[in-house]
Design a protein around this nucleic acid. Sequence first.
DNA 1: CTGAAAGCGCTTACAG
DNA 2: CTGAAAGCGCTTACAG
Lengths: 352, 352
Amino acid sequence: LRAEIERKLDVLATVTITDVAARAGLSIKTVSRVLNREPNVTEKTREKVLEAARALDYQPNLSARSLAGSRSFLIGLFFDNPSPAYINDVQLGAVSRCRESGYHLTIEPVDTTAPDLERTVRGVISTLRLDGVILTPPVCDDERVLRTLEAHGTPFVRIAPDLQPDRAPRVGMDDERAAFEMTLNLIELGHRRIGFIKGHPDHGATHLRLDGFIRAMARHDLTPRPEDVMQGWFSSQSGFECAEAMLERPDRPTAIFASNDDMALGVIASANRRRIVVPDQLSIAGFDNTPAAVTVWPHLSTVAQPIFQMAAAACDLLISRAANSPGQEGPTARLMDFEIIMRDSTAAPDDG
Amino acid sequence: LRAEIERKLDVLATVTITDVAARAGLSIKTVSRVLNREPNVTEKTREKVLEAARALDYQPNLSARSLAGSRSFLIGLFFDNPSPAYINDVQLGAVSRCRESGYHLTIEPVDTTAPDLERTVRGVISTLRLDGVILTPPVCDDERVLRTLEAHGTPFVRIAPDLQPDRAPRVGMDDERAAFEMTLNLIELGHRRIGFIKGHPDHGATHLRLDGFIRAMARHDLTPRPEDVMQGWFSSQSGFECAEAMLERPDRPTAIFASNDDMALGVIASANRRRIVVPDQLSIAGFDNTPAAVTVWPHLSTVAQPIFQMAAAACDLLISRAANSPGQEGPTARLMDFEIIMRDSTAAPDDG
DNA sequence: CTGAAAGCGCTTACAG
DNA sequence: CTGAAAGCGCTTACAG
């Protein structure tokens, strides 16, 4: 008894479900039922439990819950070589949903080029018993990762996968339409000769964005000239180099649409170097709305991806799936809305 | 028996310590000993266990380990409103160490202005039973967070705290000396009139960096003029505005040292806007070596903080502390080396 | 609507 | 040097 009392006084004392049950004058099973929102509990009982839990500041032990039950309350986020800003948004979106449901997010940066990637993934999901996994590009298109998760039966959601869109639940946005609309904006500003810088050919978004650009041009009976559509790699350096080539020509474009912000920053750098005034002499548009977009001068017009929302939606899918039967519902796809943000790097052309 | 066999064949079958013990012909206690590197095990026994574990691809269940033992193998990272690039580095550094020791990292973005911050922190550490917590600015200086962690007895390490440096173990770098050396570089390039843009006054680094700047100037008998030392807020916008003011004056500085990269980018933006050629007519230096530093033109000279290493060191401290007695060793401080990176935004002054 | 028992997969004392 | 027992704090069947 004295030991018991001392334990309660200890700063490190942890209050368990037994303590709550004792204080409420009920069994631990009933406490468990209330805390897990199970049916068949009197309102009066429910309140007694909640009151006791509150008074004791009870926090359930996740390890015990996980060991006894079928859920770990842990979601894993696998990513590789990400844009920090992108990953940051994904994390905030995912955590926001996790918090609401008592889940936590563990992060697992991986190297998709590593030979032991499979082993790493396997190790993580079986030690942690992850209730679900969120995959961002390029991990979401890695065959070994997908197969490992499938073999283990761990539910996962892919964010903006390039390949095999119907293989598993995914969340994404309509890259083609976004590029289409941005291009339309440029055309409506009065631009006719618009340069386009493609992204890394391994990324599916690269092709979709190019498609959108071409479709918008075609809609206005415009055909981009071959030398105005250049191959970049999503890096600012590649954007810089493409711009150097395009801007050197006397009949240079009046606008350049770089298919991501990093490349657009490279274009701005090139224009600044060449004393080409943006947007007066050259309009520049990007894609992604990275923080750097408002760090350059002039501020970059771009497409905002709803990354936070995509991650939150991905998390939702995982959590509801874990809460219900470890479902075999068919694959889901959720397309989120993008936003075209016109800032100071775009304007009507000089002669427009 | 048949059920047993079927279970083993099941894709979802999990191999437990009992399976390993059975295959090795030993007790689970011995398996546990080997896996935890406890002493008093024959080399022969050890090998039998490891061989069985390998054959079965055994992965210990973290929940069970945590519930039975005193460690959760979970480290928590608390952060707020961070620079994504900074936080990304912290995460990669922390995870690299976690991997080595079978630990995992859960991320807990918090809002230091939220009224229920304390409750959030308390909830997280007691449900997750975190073995340790890493705190980045500004969370590492939040009194409520520190007190909550101390009251709960959760070990924590602060990265680059501003306040009360000796209150708990910390990892950081010498901001004063870094600013000192960068300024020295500028002076040695031939600059005499150097502008300085201060950071947010609430950050301790702000004052240290200013101190370093002034000490370097003084060492060369240079006294910065009051109008050349301006108050920024660490945002690129504030850097832009300070630069606009400084560069407008006929006797403008030949170099500007912005005390972080974001502000330096604002300075570059202002220079570009004013057709001031960098570095010929103006040298610009930053601090942090953010990814954006090589995204602008010209590439930014800056100070690289060893963020990855700081986070790894923080993780080390936590893990070794968790492995040994939940120690009451005194506070530790570890200062890591920075690196001065001179790129294309700095050069000798025109008249130099 | 509520509860007593068993068990999740490990580690912690304790024997031998 | 090795092992049998108890128990960590919960949830899952099962009774009543």
